[in-house]
Amino acid sequence: MTIADQSQLLTFFVSGAEYGVDILRVQEIRGWSAPMPMPRTPTFVKGVINIRGDIVPIADLRERLGMSPQEATPTTAIVVLRIEQDGRSTVRGIVVDAMSDVTTVDAAHIKPPPDVVEAAGFAAFARGIAIVDEKLITILDVDGVFPAAVSNDNHDTLDAAIAAP
């Protein structure tokens, strides 16, 4: 087997399940630090943090996967990724419950996501399921985690703001 048939995944846990991203897309792993919340963004985008002078948006993977948010714990980590979107290369972070490992998987052991996953709305960013040592690892397509540009002015929030003293 040649090396091209293998890929390395950085894996982590979200709500008890294990997920993986292509390690070549990982810029760094950071501990949790509270981001500056950003207005007019989907709730799973928690805000922005400062990484060596770059303003980097952070998404909570739990919420992106449709699970309820959870307070940061001592194991909460931010995986900083290089993400391609709208034809640009950007740096963005995802919040995960805990880091797991670096795993090498054979291409042959990666299955397409089953229909049920699609039904749950993961299709945009689940690239496949890898089976490693009898564990299931959902491989994320990191480019799909963040929403594309939105031009929603979210008037509801603004009306609420004006009404509030």
Partner: peptide, 9 residues
């Protein structure tokens, strides 16, 4: 640079 324009900012 890493996200997109946010109205009001």
């Amino acid at each position: 640079a890493n996200y997109h324009r946010v109205p009001g900012l």
